[in-house]
Each structure stands twice: as structure tokens, then as C-alpha cells.
Amino acid sequence: MDVCVRLALWLLWGLLLHQGQSLSHSHSEKATGTSSGANSEESTAAEFCRIDKPLCHSEDEKLSFEAVRNIHKLMDDDANGDVDVEESDEFLREDLNYHDPTVKHSTFHGEDKLISVEDLWKAWKSSEVYNWTVDEVVQWLITYVELPQYEETFRKLQLSGHAMPRLAVTNTTMTGTVLKMTDRSHRQKLQLKALDTVLFGPPLLTRHNHLKDFMLVVSIVIGVGGCWFAYIQNRYSKEHMKKMMKDLEGLHRAEQSLHDLQERLHKAQEEHRTVEVEKVHLEKKLRDEINLAKQEAQRLKELREGTENERSRQKYAEEELEQVREALRKAEKELESHSSWYAPEALQKWLQLTHEVEVQYYNIKKQNAEKQLLVAKEGAEKIKKKRNTLFGTFHVAHSSSLDDVDHKILTAKQALSEVTAALRERLHRWQQIEILCGFQIVNNPGIHSLVAALNIDPSWMGSTRPNPAHFIMTDDVDDMDEEIVSPLSMQSPSLQSSVRQRLTEPQHGLGS
């Protein structure tokens, strides 16, 4: 029994001894940790006062410096006190997940390849973020970090730009207890964004957000305005092209109309020559008939004078003969009235020469109109080809070629109108001259024959008349068809009918 009691006491004593040793060891460790923490804080404070003595007594600045020092320690893998190029590049790629850190790398180092804690602190103090207000930090939280649900907490804590380094380091107390961020992804996102802002300055999105919006609005307005302008120009170009094509079609119709007119003019001239020949034959025939009538009257007179026994018949025959003579005298007077005045042959040749010289100047004017028309046609064809290209319509709308071609078409039409008026006036004037003179002027042997017949020096006439060419005029020349008939041919039928009527009546009387 005593043995059992003793054994229990030994065990209890051993447990108490072991517990005492454990408590003693724990207290010694706590004392050691407290001592090392105090030494670390003293070291940080001493270093901060050495680097930035004016701010070393500010608790907030001291906390920010400690956060900057921890960031530098995080980047300094070899713990030599300086962050070199390789260490910063590795940190950007692995910790901040930048696949192309060239720009960030140059911004961080600049011309200094080794970055110490002092360099990093001075860079942070010179950053724009260091002077941010609470509102600017909240704006950064909303737009860049995209965590607007913590806006009220940031405003309540009055977190300005000075506190940004403390957000950039992993601090459970700061993010969990103070900021009350329960979501781990939110804490990590805030820490990475803050670290990027401390090292490289304010984000471009935050700094140029309004400018970007303004430029976007301006670009949209310019784009819409450009599209509207292109649409208006395209519609104007199509309308202008439609008008130009309509004018061009009018020129083609006028060309065909003048071609038909020239054919009718040539045909009328041929008919005029035929009528002139018929007139000469008719006059000769009338003279022959008059002579035959005179001979017949003389023969009847002689027969009736030789027959004294038939006085009654003779008297009747003499009366008939007197009627025939009276008819012959009237026919002769009618014929003489139409051919009583004949212009000198020299006057006819001079008038024919005048007509040919006028035709020369008319042909020159006509050729100029043809050239203008050809230029207008070529310009229209070029515009047609340009319209078939990809940007042809837009190019035509913004060039002056369309207006130039339109002006050329209008100029050609005006020139053709002048040529039309000149042709109309010339035909009418020479027709009236032919009526008054009674001989042909338009139809003549040609300028060379006339110059030779009148003994004129050929050098006075200049160049010879160009051959009539096919040219274009407007449709108002169609009503000239009825005026192209020679006035002499219009007189011939009346002359034929009057003479024939007077010759036929006596012959019928003789026949009876």
C-alpha cells in the first residue's frame, strides 16, 4: 500500500516538474521574441530617421516606410540591400504576372540599375499617388481596383495617398480587421493593385479616363459626320452624273437629228437641180409651141386668103386666128415678164464666191463646235470609267472633274446653238437673194472655178474651204426642212400651169 502511494507521488512530482520546465521555456521564448521585435522596430526607426529625418517622428509615415521596406525586401531575393535588374524582372513576371514588363521595368529602374530602400522611398515620395486625397483614393478604388463596396470604409478611415504602401503589403490585420475584407480574392486584388500603384505611379486608366471618354465621343461624332458627308456627296454625285448623262444623251439625239437633216438637205439640193433642168426644158418647149402656133396661124391665113369662094369660112377662120394671136401675145408677155430682167453673169459669180467664202467661216465655227463636243464626250467617258472602280463615286464626288465636264457640255451646247442659228439665217438669206436675182447661188462650180473665172489672186482667199464634216446640232433644225426648197423651184409650177393653160385654150379652139 505504501509502495503505491509513493509511486503516485513520484509521478505527480515528475509531471509538475515537466510543466514548470515548459512554462519556463515558453517565457524565455516570449522574452526573446519581444526582444528581437523591439530590436527590429528600433532598426527600422533608425534607418527611417537617417533617410528622412523630418518625417521620422510621424507614426503614419513610419508605418508607410516600414511597408516600403517590406516591399523592397520582397523584391530583393539575395538580401544584399539592392534590387537589381534581374530581381525586378523576376518579381514583375512571377509576382505581378506581367508577361511583357518592358515598360514597367524601365519606369521602375530608370537609369539606376540598383534600387535601395532609400531610392524606393524617395521614388514613392515623388510619386503623384503620395499626394492623393481621400476622394482620389476612393476614385482609384472604384475605377481601377473595381471594389466600390468598400468606398464607405475607405472614407470612414480617411485613407489618403500616404496609406497606399500599407495596402500594398500582406497585412491580415489591416485588410481583415480594419478594412473588414472577408473575401480573400478581394484582399489579394487590392494588394496587387496597390503594389502596382506604389511602384509605377497612378494607372493610365485613372489619369486619362475623362480624356479617353472625350476622345471617344469626338471620334464618334467625327465618324458619324464623315459618313453623313460621304452619303450627301455620294447622292449629289449621282444626281449630277444623272443630269450629265441626260445632257449627253441629248447631244447624241441632236447628232442623229442633224445627220438626218444633212441627208434631207442634200436630197433637197438634188431636187432643186432637177427642177432647174426641168424649167429650162419647159421654157424651150414653150418657145417651140409658140413658134409652131405662129407657123400654123400663118399657114391657115395663107390658105384662107387663096380661097375666095369660102368667105364665110374665111371670116370665121380669121376670127379664130385673131383669138390665137391674142393668146400668143399674152403668152409672150407672160414669158417676157418672167425673163425680162437677167442679172449679169459676173454678178452671179461674185454672189456665188461670196456664198463660198461665208461657208468657209461657217465651217470653221462648226469645227470648233465639233472639237468642244469631242472634249465633252471624252470627259464623260472618263467619268463613266471612274464610277466603275471601287472608290470611283467617292473620288468623283470630291474632285472638280464632274463640274468641269458639266461646264464643257454646256459650252458645247451653246456653241451648237450658235451654229444652228447661223445655218438657219444663212439658208434663209441666200434663198431670198436667189428669189430676187432669179439664178442659182448655193449650187455653184466651187471656189476654185469661181476664183479662176473672176481672175482673182488665190492668195487673197487664204486656205481653201474644208470639206463639210458631220457635226452635231440641236433638234430645232428639224423645222428647217420646208425652207430648204429653192424659190426657183417653187415658181416653176405656177409658170408651167399659166403658160400651158393659155396655149391649150387656143389649140382647142383651132381643133374645133
Results as ranks from 00 to 15, higher is better:
residue 89 D to C: 00
residue 63 L to E: 13
residue 70 N to Q: 11
residue 87 E to H: 11
residue 73 K to S: 06
residue 78 D to V: 09
residue 68 V to G: 09
residue 66 E to C: 11
residue 70 N to F: 11
residue 82 D to E: 08
residue 81 G to A: 11
residue 94 E to P: 13
residue 88 S to P: 05
residue 66 E to I: 12
residue 83 V to H: 12
residue 63 L to C: 07
residue 82 D to P: 14
residue 85 V to R: 02
residue 76 D to S: 15
residue 69 R to W: 07
residue 98 Y to T: 00
residue 74 L to G: 05
residue 65 F to A: 13
residue 80 N to T: 06
residue 65 F to W: 13
residue 90 E to Q: 02
residue 75 M to H: 11
residue 73 K to C: 10
residue 67 A to P: 03
residue 78 D to A: 10
residue 80 N to W: 09
residue 65 F to P: 13
residue 95 D to I: 04
residue 90 E to L: 02
residue 89 D to V: 00
residue 86 E to F: 04
residue 82 D to H: 09
residue 64 S to L: 13
residue 97 N to R: 01
residue 92 L to F: 13
residue 92 L to W: 15
residue 97 N to M: 05
residue 91 F to M: 12
residue 81 G to M: 15
residue 76 D to Y: 07
residue 88 S to V: 01
residue 72 H to N: 02
residue 85 V to H: 07
residue 82 D to C: 08
residue 72 H to Q: 04
residue 79 A to P: 05
residue 90 E to N: 08
residue 70 N to A: 12
residue 85 V to K: 06
residue 74 L to P: 03
residue 75 M to I: 02
residue 92 L to H: 15
residue 71 I to L: 11
residue 85 V to A: 01
residue 96 L to Y: 12
residue 83 V to P: 13
residue 83 V to G: 03
residue 81 G to S: 06
residue 75 M to Q: 10
residue 93 R to L: 15
residue 68 V to T: 13
residue 69 R to I: 07
residue 91 F to W: 14
residue 90 E to G: 00
residue 67 A to Q: 05
residue 66 E to P: 08
residue 73 K to A: 09
residue 68 V to P: 12
residue 93 R to H: 12
residue 98 Y to I: 05
residue 69 R to V: 08
residue 91 F to D: 15
residue 77 D to H: 03
residue 75 M to L: 01
residue 92 L to E: 15
residue 90 E to Y: 04
residue 90 E to T: 00
residue 78 D to I: 15
residue 89 D to L: 00
residue 72 H to P: 05
residue 78 D to Q: 14
residue 63 L to V: 03
residue 97 N to C: 00
residue 87 E to S: 02
residue 66 E to Y: 10
residue 71 I to V: 02
residue 67 A to W: 13
residue 79 A to C: 04
residue 87 E to L: 02
residue 92 L to A: 15
residue 69 R to D: 07
residue 95 D to N: 04
residue 65 F to L: 02
residue 75 M to F: 09
residue 94 E to K: 00
residue 83 V to I: 05
residue 84 D to Q: 12
residue 76 D to V: 06
residue 68 V to A: 06
residue 84 D to M: 09
residue 72 H to S: 08
residue 89 D to E: 00
residue 71 I to Q: 10
residue 98 Y to G: 03
residue 76 D to N: 09
residue 95 D to K: 05
residue 64 S to F: 08
residue 76 D to F: 11
residue 77 D to F: 09
residue 75 M to P: 03
residue 91 F to R: 13
residue 94 E to W: 13
residue 74 L to E: 05
residue 64 S to Y: 13
residue 88 S to W: 01
residue 79 A to E: 01
residue 78 D to P: 15
residue 70 N to D: 01
residue 88 S to Q: 09
residue 76 D to W: 15
residue 94 E to Q: 07
residue 81 G to Y: 14
residue 93 R to E: 14
residue 72 H to C: 07
residue 96 L to R: 06
residue 86 E to S: 09
residue 75 M to S: 06
residue 80 N to I: 04
residue 66 E to S: 11
residue 78 D to T: 15
residue 84 D to P: 13
